[in-house]
Computed example of a mutant assay.
Amino acid sequence: MPVVDIADKLALFSDHWSPKVVARLNDYEIKLVKLKGEFVWHTHEDTDELFLVIDGRLTIQLRDGDVTLGPGQLFVVPRGVEHCPIADGDVSAMLIEPAGVVNTGDAGGELTAARDTSLLD
């Protein structure tokens, strides 16, 4: 059972809005992602989504008010809640969600990441 070094894993990629699986926990995937700019408004009807900021500042737009996170802060977007992340500058974050969740949820489009993109050893 290898130890996951978050900094080492983040150094392995540079693409934005394309989460990489670094660990699995039961039926969940632990993903690292680099963010920059604005994403798309979307929902995940069947699951909550956890954002944990590692570096930078991330704003998660919600229809009833925004949430801004800095390093070491996390926020859980409840299932079915429409949201749109915005990264002002470069942001590194961890996502925790059930295996197979599509990053763009119900929105689809060009920012939909490839499934099963993994950095597992």
Rank of each mutant, 00 (worst) to 15 (best):
K9R: 14
F13T: 09
L74G: 15
E110P: 03
S18D: 13
T112D: 05
H44D: 13
L69Q: 05
P98V: 13
V77W: 01
S92E: 15
R63C: 00
A107Q: 09
L69E: 06
V21W: 10
L50Y: 12
P85H: 01
V3Q: 08
P19E: 11
A107I: 10
P2H: 07
V22D: 03
D88Y: 12
S92H: 11
A11V: 09
G37T: 11
E45C: 01
I30F: 10
D116F: 12
T47E: 09
L119M: 06
F13D: 02
L120N: 03
I6P: 05
M1C: 09
R57S: 15
H83C: 02
G89K: 01
D55E: 15
D15E: 15
K31W: 04
E38Q: 13
A107F: 04
G100A: 13
E82Y: 09
G70T: 08
D66V: 03
T117D: 14
L35F: 05
A87T: 11
V4D: 01
L62P: 13
T112A: 15
L58E: 07
G72A: 08
R24N: 12
A23K: 01
I30C: 08
L111R: 04
S14L: 07
L62D: 11
L25G: 06
L111G: 00
H44P: 12
E29D: 14
S14W: 07
S118R: 08
A23M: 05
T117V: 13
S118N: 07
K9D: 06
A99S: 14
Q73F: 00
V101P: 00
N103V: 14
K9H: 08
F13C: 05
K31N: 12
D46H: 13
L58A: 05
L10W: 06
A114M: 12
F39K: 04
K34M: 08
H42N: 06
V21M: 10
Q61I: 00
D88N: 14
D66W: 05
L74T: 06
L35M: 15
D48S: 04
L50R: 02
I86M: 05
L35E: 06
C84G: 04
E45G: 09
G100C: 13
Y28G: 02
Q61F: 10
F13G: 04
N26P: 05
E29F: 02
R79Y: 07
D46P: 00
L119A: 03
D46F: 11
S118G: 08
R24C: 07
K9T: 01
N103F: 07
T43R: 14
L32W: 06
E110I: 13
G89Q: 07
V81F: 02
V53Q: 02
